[in-house]
């Protein structure tokens, strides 16, 4: 790592400490937005820690499902087109399982508590 300290998790912690410190001085509306800001920082923290691995796993499964090799955004676009055109109708359960896996990966970053115990 070329960059100096603080590293990303440390910077996130610093910003969160600042927001938490001023919460009591804010009116209701501002407080709500400050809590949203904290929520967004938590997302960044999780994405920094696990986002790369989630993307890699999703891309590998998409390549296998579609039988093509391409970067993740392109694979995702192709999957959307295939579902839309009805191409996936014959592999519906397989497609649902694949997409469920992707969505679980997104929720793990956004709000892991939201997941049913079967996906935690």
């Amino acid at each position: 790592m070329l960059q100096d300290r603080p590293d990303v998790p440390e910077i996130l912690k610093s910003v969160r400490e600042f927001i938490t410190g001023v919460l009591d001085k804010l009116d209701d509306q501002e407080r709500y937005h400050a809590l949203c800001a904290n929520y967004l920082l938590n997302i960044v923290e999780r994405e920094f820690a696990i986002g790369g691995a989630i993307d890699d796993a999703a891309a590998a499964k998409l390549r296998a499902f579609l039988g093509v090799d391409a970067p993740l955004p392109e694979l995702s676009k192709r999957l959307c087109a295939a579902i839309r055109s009805g191409e996936c109708d014959q592999r519906w359960d397989e497609a649902v399982a694949l997409v469920m896996d992707q969505v679980v990966g997104k929720v793990k970053v956004t709000k892991p508590d939201h997941l049913d115990p079967m996906h935690r």
Binding site: C80, R84, C88, L98, V99, Q102, V103
Partner: peptide, 9 residues
């Protein structure tokens, strides 16, 4: 959003 595509389909 593949999940929404599934929903739409």
């Amino acid at each position: 959003h593949p999940a929404l595509e599934l929903g739409f389909r």
